[in-house]
Amino acid sequence: MGTTHLEPVQEPKYWHLKTVLNEALDSEFAVGEVLPNERELAARFGVARATLRQALEQLELEGRLQRRRGVGTTVAPPRMGVSIGPAQGSWPGAAGDAWRTVGCVEAPAPAAVARLLGEDPDSAADAGTLVHTVRRVRMMHGQAVATELLYVPRTSVPGLPETLSPATHPRAVLRELNRLDLESEDRAVELGSARAEDAKQLERLPGAPVLVVTTRYVAAGRVVAVAVATYRADTCRLTFGDTGSMEITHHDGAEQRQAS
């Protein structure tokens, strides 16, 4: 077999500028410091403002920069570990769970969730199969680092009262879920786009890149609940410890912690 010579690929100008800017951030700017405006930066590096914007957007996506309304573009602080959801082997809402509930509704499960629950989406829609959808949020130092939708079918929590107030509904669902014997759980992680409501909670624009962590909870030989958690992709990173647990890291002033 002959040797194949690959044609050299020229690096895009904005990508090279991103590398130069990255080095400047390390050597010339402190955490939280506001960068000069686009006009000044473009003049300094001798590039068009469109090229500069591409480089800045890439650095923001990689978590090196933060853009804040009324402040400007600042150097992002170091990352700090935030473990994904509840500890392995425990239900959402168990003791030590760092999430807090912000509401709960009863509605048909989305088609993708119905499939994860082992139901046929078309049949479930026709039958009007309802699930309790608990919305939760995880706060850290006053900022939302993730949002979650926890889907619990009626059949998984048959002990719920027929009538529940908005205040007691989510707590009652979590309480009944924790009465079950958890057999196993599995998680999947993928890159997604922020939906309008999640984007609002995370202070991002709709369609912004996010990390989506989907967890299925199994009891009595079947999937009894599905959680879909959304994390900001520009400030979060996944790490895997020796035990197989995962950790989300989020920008904050504290030092980074390792997964356990």
Rank of each mutant, 00 (worst) to 15 (best):
P153T: 11
P153S: 03
R195G: 15
V173K: 00
D198T: 07
A233T: 04
T168V: 15
R187P: 03
E185P: 02
A172F: 01
A199N: 07
E185H: 14
A219V: 13
R175C: 09
V131Y: 03
T147F: 05
E197L: 14
D198I: 03
L191H: 15
T163G: 09
V137Y: 05
V137A: 09
A167K: 10
P209L: 13
V210L: 07
V226P: 00
E176W: 03
V224A: 05
A220F: 11
R222F: 08
Q201V: 12
P166D: 08
V152P: 00
N178S: 14
G142W: 09
E190H: 14
Y217F: 09
R138P: 00
V223H: 06
L150N: 00
L174H: 00
S156I: 05
T129N: 13
P170C: 04
E190M: 15
E197W: 10
A229N: 00
Q143A: 15
M140V: 13
L149Q: 09
A127K: 15
L130A: 10
L150T: 07
A208V: 06
A227M: 06
V134E: 02
Q201W: 11
R222A: 08
L180I: 11
V210H: 01
R216K: 09
T168C: 09
H169S: 02
L160M: 03
A144S: 06
R179N: 10
L160G: 03
L202N: 02
A146H: 02
A220S: 12
E119Y: 05
T215W: 04
E183N: 12
A199S: 12
A188N: 14
P158M: 13
P206C: 14
E190F: 15
S193P: 11
M139N: 08
R138W: 07
A208L: 10
V145H: 01
E197K: 12
